[in-house]
Design a protein around this nucleic acid. Structure first.
Length: 479
RNA sequence: GUCCCCAUCGUCUAGUGGCCUAGGACGCCGGCCUCUCACGCCGGCAACACGGGUUCGACUCCCGUUGGGGACGCCA
């Protein structure tokens, strides 16, 4: 694998190559997305290469559906890799060759211990309150019965300390005698995670491994493998984990964690990324970032070391901000989709483009926007929201609405400005307060007590529906 | 249990020995704006886990305690 050299002002420097390596045993969740985001951001700033590698060495649990979900989730978030996706299942021979080489060099050995005997061993160790681990009893075995299954284990160094300078966690050290002889190849002949990771990280020229800190305890084992294989050890950056509201590692029982669920729920990819990037990383007191700003500013070495708890309220606020600052055109597809799901079919884009600006500051999600915009598409808003009708509609004199309706009916053009003028004239003529007329009208038009400015609401609803709903309300009041 | 990691408002964080009477943001409360709801603006509540050191001086450095998390698979 070629390593690329880039010239930097300060001299020669190896181009950074990073990878995101999910296992396809489920959807892409929000914690994984954050890891991928940090990885991509850091790599982009340095002009390096971001690689996607699917770790499917567990054939039992890996599924195509999970692969698809991961790819779709990453694409939605703009986390497309520069290289890949690569699949570990395509590299099996490479892993097996490496394992064989270690056996040949006396750095790994066949172990014939049964699962049962090892389970028993671990159980007694647990009872003695020491760390459960394989005791290496097959290290010195000389008989290799041909008809019995075996695994290949790595001869972990028994003395010394393995340490590395983590880019986030600083120095981490493990006494080697804490580690046992890990399995490289299973009894069915398939390679395991730790072997595959090391072989791939080397063959793909990975220079920096960015991953969750739940992998910290794997790192000394992987470093041993790099060393045994005579390969350079990459740098590491272990990210603090994302926790659920109960303070534990985020998992399915914490509810909506699939990235695609956030799309369903009306979140914008830029907003989700913005929220995620602020979990463990900051740039002074800045809260809001565009994608470009993140790419220019993000540095993995500035990531904090403590875990963060996922907080929906802040995500909602950030999503609201991104909805407000987006162009109507950018929001069009998401709103169309939401309306379609509400059963309104396909709405003309031109109409939606007029509607969107009036609702951008009023919705924290696209789902919420679809709900607020709903009254524009239904045939009738009856029954009215009971509280709204009681408070605003029923106390109003029907004559006021009749006067307004007649005035509006005479308008030659149905434009927001003209409507506003007309409305104010009626208010003046009736010697009413603006709100005393706007609120009942609002209930008549929307069925609720809140909407955009009353003239905008009338305009967006259109002449026919507006007049019809006023008529409907007048009838309702006179009952 | 063993090993590894972490510890500032409820949450995300700023803070790298004096600038801290600890700053910002979300949320919450109050107000302003206003035809409603939002947006926006102004104000308020709210934190350095604890105990020892080191130092003229600790949120900041060291040690311990407590608390939390992670790992301990023929999963990744």
């Amino acid at each position: 694998m070629a390593l690329f050299l880039l010239v930097f002002p300060g001299g020669y420097r190896m181009s950074v190559r990073t990878r995101f390596a999910p296992s396809p045993t489920g959807f892409l969740h929000i914690g994984g997305a954050r890891t991928a985001l940090f990885c991509q951001l850091h790599t982009r700033r340095l002009g390096g290469t971001f690689i996607l590698r699917i770790e499917d060495t567990d054939r039992e649990r890996s599924t195509q559906a999970a692969v698809d979900a991961i790819l779709e989730g990453m694409h939605w978030l703009g986390l497309d890799p520069d290289e890949g996706p690569f699949f570990q299942s395509d590299h099996t021979q490479l892993y097996l060759d490496a394992a064989q080489r270690l056996v040949d060099e006396g750095k790994a050995y066949r172990c014939y211990c049964s699962r049962e005997s090892i389970d028993a061993l671990r159980e007694t160790q647990r009872q003695q309150q020491i760390k459960p681990r394989y005791d290496g009893r097959c290290r010195t075995r000389s008989a290799f019965p041909a008809d019995q299954p075996y695994v290949i284990r790595f001869k972990t160094p028994t003395e010394g300390v393995t340490a590395w300078e983590d880019q986030i966690q600083e120095t981490i050290r493990f006494p080697n005698d804490e580690l046992d002889d890990l399995i490289l190849v299973r009894s069915d002949g398939s390679p395991t995670y730790n072997l595959a990771v090391v072989v791939d990280d080397h063959s793909m020229g990975i220079t920096l491994v960015i991953r969750g800190e739940d992998h910290i305890s794997n790192t000394p084992r992987q470093i041993h493998l790099f060393q045994a294989l005579g390969w350079p050890v990459p740098e590491y950056a272990h990210m603090p984990l994302l926790h659920g509201s109960d303070g534990s590692k985020l998992s399915k029982r914490h509810g909506a964690v699939s990235v695609l669920q956030y799309r369903e729920d009306g979140f914008l990819p830029d907003a989700l990324n913005n929220y995620l990037v602020r979990l463990g990383w900051s740039h002074g007191e800045q809260e809001l970032f565009t994608r470009q700003e993140m790419q220019q500013l993000f540095d993995i070495r500035q990531v904090g070391r403590s875990a963060a708890i996922f907080n929906l309220d802040k995500l909602l606020w950030i999503n609201g901000h991104h909805i407000r600052t987006a162009t109507p055109e950018q929001l069009l597809p998401a709103l169309s989709q939401q309306l379609d799901m509400l059963g309104f079919g396909v709405v003309e884009p031109e109409r939606l483009l007029r509607i969107i600006p009036e609702f951008q500051s009023r919705a924290k999600t696209m789902v919420e926007m679809a709900e607020k915009v709903r009254f524009l598409f239904v045939d009738s808003v009856l029954p009215y929201d009971e509280k709204a009708a009681q408070k605003h509609l029923y106390p109003c004199a029907p004559q006021a609405l009749i006067t307004l309706q007649q005035a509006l009916a005479q308008l030659e053009e149905w434009q927001a400005e003209v409507i506003d003028q007309c409305f104010r004239q009626v208010v003046a003529q009736l010697q009413m307060e603006m709100g005393k007329l706007a609120q009942p009208v609002r209930v008549a038009l929307t069925g609720t007590a809140s909407s955009p400015g009353i003239h905008d609401t009338l305009f967006l609803l259109g002449r026919d529906k507006s007049l019809q709903r006023l008529q409907e309300a007048i009838g309702h009041m006179q009952k």
